[in-house]
Design a binder for these strands. Structure first.
Length: 272
DNA sequence: GAGAATTTGGCGCTCCATAA
DNA sequence: TTATGGAGCGCCAAATTCTC
């Protein structure tokens, strides 16, 4: 791996007030400068972790690989987008569940259709789910920024079923069928095993994401375009800023995601 | 060799970061 | 809310080193 970080990054972090944050950023920079490169795939959800995935986002623009700066191609509303599979085609994701019983349970789920599911799908593929919820929350007196809505939405998705706060109640009203299905998937197990209790839903979606990015998209990119720069940051793929490379990676991402999920995703390219 | 003093290693916690 | 990794902390016990 030919990763480097430009020395300008050091002056960039100089005015960070918080000592802890400063030290964390400093450590990340020096690790790359000193060629202390690490990378691994974890055994829970199969995600890829590296110097780049741990690096503060605002320092990404100083990273080069083979001397090339990076562009990040991000899947919008990624986990909500992937969560639609549990509504439309659960059997497809069942093999990715680590726990046998949970896999069989997911396998047994049927595809469901309803008005609220159609609405959920359309919001998620257009990348508008947070904006929509922001409006609906505001109607009920909850005034959040987009960032806060995003955070709250993940709590709605992944918190155990016994937590029924105002936000979740609103979501359940807006998307009753979706909420019911997701509750079933989280289950009510009190097991300590995170492949069995409510955490299994988050883990499953992460496993789907890993399977798509690491198991399908990246191998295809490397096989068809040897030498191209492509590294993942969980749900996104970084490549060089050549327009042709960006288009290549995008095309493959859209193709693979659409094939697997059955819905066309929205990608966002951030030039760094 | 016995006991004290020091060092080492592991565990669990908190924080930082990333991602959703 | 979930997942990960790394750093750094305190804690404790085991291992090592020191002193008598």
């Amino acid at each position: 791996r030919q990763m480097n970080i430009e020395t300008e990054s050091l002056s960039f972090i100089e005015n960070i007030e918080d000592d802890n944050k400063f030290n964390a950023a400093m450590t990340s920079i020096y690790k790359i400068m000193n060629r202390d490169i690490f990378y691994s795939v974890d055994s829970t959800s199969g995600r890829y972790h590296s110097n780049l995935t741990n690096l503060p986002g605002y320092l990404r623009e100083f990273i080069t690989i083979h001397g090339q700066h990076l562009v990040n191609i991000d899947l919008k509303n990624s986990q909500p987008y992937l969560s639609t599979l549990l509504l439309t085609d659960p059997g497809k994701v069942a093999p990715l569940a680590k726990d046998r019983n949970f896999a069989m349970f997911v396998e047994s789920l049927k595809s469901i259709e309803s008005e609220d599911i159609t609405k959920y799908k359309s919001l998620v593929i257009s990348g508008q789910i947070y904006e929509y919820l922001m409006l609906k929350f505001a109607d009920h007196g909850l005034h959040y920024t987009r960032r806060q809505v995003k955070r709250q939405f993940f709590i709605i998705l992944f918190a155990r079923n016994t937590i029924m706060n105002k936000q979740r109640r609103i979501f359940a009203e807006l998307f009753p069928t979706v909420h019911e299905r997701f509750s079933e998937i989280r289950g009510n197990s009190n097991s300590k095993n995170h492949f069995q209790n409510s955490k299994r839903f988050a883990i499953l979606l992460q496993a789907v994401e890993s399977h798509l990015i690491l198991g399908r998209i990246l191998p295809r990119v490397y096989a068809e375009y040897p030498g191209i720069i492509a590294v993942s940051i969980h749900d996104s793929v970084c490549t060089s800023l050549f327009t042709s490379d960006i288009e290549t990676v995008k095309k493959i991402m859209i193709k693979e995601l659409t094939d697997f999920v059955g819905l066309i995703p929205t990608l966002k390219t951030e030039k760094k």
